[in-house]
Design a protein around this nucleic acid. Structure first.
Ligand SMILES: [Mn+2]
Ligand SMILES: [Mn+2]
Ligand SMILES: [Zn+2]
Ligand SMILES: [Zn+2]
Lengths: 133, 133
DNA sequence: CCGTGGTTTGGACTTTGTCCAAAGTCGGAC
DNA sequence: GTCCGACTTTGGACAAAGTCCAAACCACGG
């Protein structure tokens, strides 16, 4: 099994793993999970009532900057956070239930034309999930 | 040449093409254009000073619902609007200048596994544009 | 010309995210 | 063990982006 987000954070050096950070990491643990910042906040509050919104936002941003958390902009409303960075995968937004679902990475090699340098590619599929189809 | 957004709107039936709607369509005219709602608003105000923000937002949404305008959620901040629905194409966000650029559609056929029904796929590339590379 | 229904308007409101100064906490130096 | 400095958290103010709504406006058919 791949190491969890919390395990990956524990390996980071020069980084205090505070109660707040642990709680945020715990909330994010799981398969096929794509929570918004406010969803993370309310679940974190259940475990650590005095945690503040600013901390949740800044902690999420730190995890993203450390490369341990993916930030998804799927709908122009709120960003979603995905702890499963490996293996890389894409996402389907169900047009019926609005859910977000992982889709296996089919290695759609970016076309390297035109002199532009592509670093990464993210695919957003729209359609119906297995439950709604 | 492909018909412009305004031309496509004129072919819609049962739909009043008011001054406000014409101005919004005009602002959106052009190649490689990916404006935010507020950018559309300020350019529209230059042509029709009394136009309101609510109208711009609702007009954009109508164009999107009619299938005549693409709505892009590229960065989790503001949505961008793309009048060039044909031919389909994808987008590159330049990590250096933050610009949005069209990328030719390389027909990355969605993998049809798993019983989910894919209607469309949008690819967001990150990298450096031709100017910055 | 009137009535009716679609359209627009301004402003209030909500959601999502950012910023900051003050307070708190941790770990190493002594 | 205590102190210090750096890192972290907090609450609240602020900002950006978008939504909602009642009232006013306008266009068109009858
Ligand atoms: Mn995922
Ligand atoms: Mn485009
Ligand atoms: Zn579904
Ligand atoms: Zn660039």
């Amino acid at each position: 099994m791949h190491p969890t987000l919390l395990e990956r954070l524990q390996q980071q050096r020069g980084y205090r793993l505070t109660a707040q950070r642990r709680v945020v990491a715990q909330v994010l643990e799981g398969e096929n999970l794509h929570l918004t910042a406010d969803e993370v906040l309310s679940q974190a509050e259940a475990m650590l009532p005095e945690i503040s919104r600013a901390t949740v936002y800044s902690t999420l941003q730190q995890f993203v900057d450390m490369g341990q958390l993916l930030e998804l902009s799927l709908d122009g409303r709120s960003r979603r956070y995905d702890p499963n960075i490996d293996p890389p995968h894409h996402h389907l937004i169900c047009t019926e239930c609005d859910g977000v679902f992982d889709v296996a990475h089919n290695v759609a090699a970016p076309d390297a034309g035109d002199g532009l340098e592509i670093e990464s590619a993210q695919i957003i599929y729209r359609g119906r999930c297995t439950d709604c189809a």
